[in-house]
Write a protein that binds this DNA or RNA. Structure first.
Lengths: 362, 362
DNA sequence: TTTTTTTGTGTGTACGAACACAAAAACAAA
DNA sequence: TTTGTTTTTGTGTTCGTACACACAAAAAAA
């Protein structure tokens, strides 16, 4: 390999000092137009690429990134993005990057706002913000403020479109609904009625849930040969098995031909449990996420499919994108959809293992 | 964040010079036992972690890695691992790592050997070897030689067990066969006969193909309630549509209840094409890999499922593992199974996109 | 014209680790 | 004690970049 071009090489060839080249590279000004021109030309000619290693060493500054996430004590799902964030920290700690988490209760918008304000109060501290913008209004405000302060933001889990965020990393909710439709459809010869079930507290106007439903409906609408009814229900008190069982029973009484249930979040296991309680066996369930509770029913085939949202990767890539932007000044793809993994009993182990072990330490 | 501990800090606290600390860290010897003891103790106490950035910069040496792979002009599948390797190169070029490819015709063991010898001839040049050990005997020999020369090796695609290789990155062939069984089974209510089809030239004693078949059979054997026949056929002249069509026709005549075909490599599209030619529509096909030819039939639902072997990731992680081992002296997991992704029409786009875009540049 | 300010350029040190070489200490043999 | 040899320890330079500082020349203000 030919020797890599250094600033010194450029300086020599352009007949200036390294300081001047440095000024051109970093746009620090105070360079006469024609010197600047000359330096740029030589850089082009020699194909200069900065040595990031040396650059990082000399730069010698700490980047702080704030991470605004749901408290995983309230919903265990959120442990997973945190695992990814921790992996990212591990990968990049040598670059002097620090991540400070801020947690909120995912059912309480005001807690989100409060933590957002905490971040904004210390905003001079932070070079970047990673967030799960679960609350549209509150998150939009934070994104706006950050944008004004020129602090780049990365969103995971939920996408707020038209925000001035650096990027979104997560799933395509609409398409995951389409996929759920396909999976329900695939296993049943004679699908007649399917149920979209939303187990969440509070009025969930959450856009990503509506997108899932829309995708699901569109899948069945796209099948001209079949005539399938798609029901949609919300149920709030999902921690109460008795109530939920009664609720399901009522549905089966009203719609006896219901052969598939699509649970739009990670709580499919609650449905699987209640179906066992009320003795319904032939109903297919499709849900999300590889929580231990779900896996149990996946292994016993009471849940047919789980769609993996790659939560660990969301956290990991969220941080990595901010770092790539801040430190390496890389161009960042604003919309990064992670794959919609179809998980069954026979391939689940690899996803679990990868979630724990993957990480590219460099 | 508290300041990170430097060699200088250790030296001061231990009352020695940085040179001595350096000698202890790198086990260069020539340190009196009690000084060594003292330095080690202080390192422990302060929790020293080397600054990799500074270390890399000072190290200032080029690592060369040889990559022994099938020529992708012969089989387009092999473009994909190459893409991953190129991504890895991009990610780590700043660390002074170079990758030199050596190609062989995947149908010719002697070409493999020849290239292996080329690598061994220049073995002083290479700090590591990445290889796809398609030929058991020839590859084992190479692995043995590398081991003797203390050159670490990483295997992708095919695993040679009990070799002294640093690691294997790829799929679990047996389990992918099990998964294929599940997928064939899932879509058909009344499976009766299924066919395992091996489209390859030469006598394919390839272990990973046998493992796939074994997994497939085991899946159906594990279903006590169903009585399913699993046929196994090899067919060499798969580029000749007419011959292949005739071959398939014969099979359907002999086994009219064949409802699913499991193609054990990336050539499922040839079967899909011939089934169209002979007008068989109701037969499910499960195959491997997201080749353009396969995708076409996946989109038209003539191929039901493709199992993604993550070939891009294989190349990427193969290189990254060598780098982690060589440069960062990380502990490497010797057996790294990549997920068995189930790919259908509704989620294929994300896998294609990720294969092209993923990469963690740091 | 002199003084002050602005602009342009070069020099030197720091970042933390690696390693070559010099110096000092310890030991051995005369 | 001296000299030579080996072992142990310390010093100084290097890697490529960032940035502070020094200093000149040019421009603007007095």
């Amino acid at each position: 390999m030919e020797r890599r071009i250094r600033i010194k090489d450029i300086a020599e060839k352009a007949g200036v000092s390294t300081g001047t080249v440095d000024r051109v590279i970093h746009k620090r000004g105070n360079v006469s137009p024609k010197t600047k021109q000359k330096v740029k030309q030589v850089m082009e000619e020699l194909g200069y690429e900065p040595n990031i290693i040396a650059s990082m060493l000399a730069y010698n500054r700490v980047f702080k990134i704030a991470a605004l996430l749901p408290d995983y004590h309230v919903d265990p799902y959120w442990q997973q993005p945190k695992i990814g964030i921790d992996k990212a920290i591990e990968s990049i700690k040598h670059y002097g990057v620090e991540v400070i988490p801020f947690y909120f209760n995912l059912f309480k918008a005001e807690e989100f706002s409060q933590q957002a304000n905490n971040i904004l109060d210390q905003s001079k501290e932070f070079s970047g913000v990673l967030l799960a913008p679960l609350f549209l209004k509150e998150a939009s405000e934070l994104l706006k403020q950050c944008s004004e302060k020129h602090i780049p933001t990365a969103m995971i889990n939920t996408n707020i479109e038209n925000s001035e965020s650096l990027c979104y990393i997560g799933q395509d909710s609409y398409q995951s609904g389409v996929l759920a439709g396909r999976l329900i459809d695939f296993g049943c010869d004679k699908v007649d009625t399917t149920l979209v079930l939303n187990l969440a507290k509070g009025v969930t106007n959450a856009k990503h849930l509506l997108d899932k439903e829309r995708g699901f409906r569109d899948y069945f609408n796209s099948l001209p040969e079949k005539e399938i009814t798609v029901l949609k229900k919300d149920f709030e008190d999902f921690t109460d098995d008795a109530k939920l069982s009664r609720f399901l029973k009522t549905i089966f009484e009203q719609h006896p031909k219901t052969t598939g249930i699509f649970v739009t979040n990670s709580r499919a296991y609650r449905i699987a449990k209640c179906l066992q309680l009320i003795g319904k066996k032939e109903v297919k369930i499709v849900g999300y996420d590889l929580l231990e509770e779900n896996l149990q029913y996946l292994r016993s085939n009471d849940i047919s499919f789980l769609i993996n949202q790659n939560p660990v990767q969301q956290g990991y890539f969220g941080i990595m994108n901010l770092v790539n932007h801040l430190l390496l000044k890389k161009e960042i793809d604003p919309l990064q959809y992670l794959p919609l993994d179809i998980v069954v009993n026979e391939n689940v182990e690899y996803y679990l293992k990868r979630a724990l072990e993957f990480s590219i330490v460099v």
